[in-house]
């Protein structure tokens, strides 16, 4: 092993060690604050031990996995629809001034409308069917995705556009190889944001209008005044979402941003 390799290895392991130390300190601090809140809340904030017990209880029931699957399915449907429509619209707006002029006010308005309004309006118009909540979520998420993608397309290198024109790249090749890759960091940010928002909003929709799903279960625990189960169910689902992120998003990010390293 050369000196450079040894130094580089030390840098990598040193960096990891630092990150691990920071993570450990932050986690311990958060747990300590939580425990303190338990002591001064007169029982309303469940202790860490009670949450662990509830976690074990919930994890051993079959229905929690059915609820998880229902919520995950809803998240993916909402996420897929919002990202594909949002990315398409964002790219079109970034490349075409007329499309931008037409949709910009709608997107700005869409960003300003509180998410809960989408949900309530969808329930009032379409009823409490599952699809009404999903439509409301898609409509709520699209402006966020569009906003991020438009920024990415607008910040592209005009020199590469010029190169594409000089070498007469076909429209599709230009969109994929020149615009698409330049915008890929924004697209990844947009999809991650969309995924995170989809989870937060779907839980809200489920709590307000659905009998099944993690959101409905959290709300059910709230009505029964069982905060330990509320937190346990949320924690279980957060673990699942982190896994999904590690399995799907991390490799995609590595694939599309590998050239930067």
């Amino acid at each position: 092993m050369t000196t450079e390799q040894v130094v580089s290895l030390r840098q990598i392991t040193g960096g990891r060690l630092q990150r691990f130390q920071a993570f450990t300190v932050a986690s311990l601090l958060a747990l300590a604050v939580w425990q303190l809140a338990t002591l001064i809340s007169d029982g309303w904030v469940p202790s860490l031990w009670r949450i662990m017990e509830a976690l074990g209880e919930d994890a051993s029931t079959a229905s929690i996995y059915t609820d998880m699957w229902i919520t995950l399915r809803r998240i993916f449907v909402t996420f897929a629809a919002a990202t594909s429509i949002g990315i398409g619209l964002g790219v079109a707006m970034g490349l075409n001034r007329r499309v931008m002029a037409f949709f910009r006010p709608i997107v700005v308005m869409g960003l300003a409308v509180p998410d809960v309004v989408y949900i309530i309006v969808a329930i009032l118009v379409l009823g409490t069917e599952e699809s009404s909540g999903l439509i409301a979520m898609v409509l709520a998420l699209i402006p966020f995705v569009v906003n991020i993608v438009v920024g990415g397309v607008g910040a592209r290198d005009p020199g590469l556009d010029e190169m594409s024109a000089v070498y007469r790249l076909r429209r599709l090749r230009y969109l994929v190889d020149v615009v698409g890759w330049q915008v890929s960091p924004s697209l990844i940010v947009a999809t991650r944001t969309c995924f995170a928002f989809a989870w937060k909003l779907i839980v809200l929709v489920e709590a307000l209008s659905q009998p099944r799903g993690i959101g409905a279960q959290i709300y059910y625990s709230f009505r029964l005044l069982r905060p330990d189960h509320m937190i346990a169910r949320a924690l279980l689902f957060i673990v699942v979402l982190r896994l999904v992120e590690a399995i799907i998003f991390a490799p995609v990010e590595k694939r599309f941003l590998g050239w930067m390293r």
């Binding site: 020199g159 590469l160 010029e162 070498y167 190889d177």
Partner: peptide, 28 residues
């Protein structure tokens, strides 16, 4: 067909050297 060498290289950084040339060859 016109070849153009710009002040800055204007290569696609997410494509390898060979892929950068291949893209314009296919376009031509």
């Amino acid at each position: 067909p016109i070849g153009y060498v710009f002040q800055e290289h204007r290569l696609l950084p997410w494509r390898t050297v060979a892929q950068n040339i291949a893209i314009v060859l296919r376009a031509a």
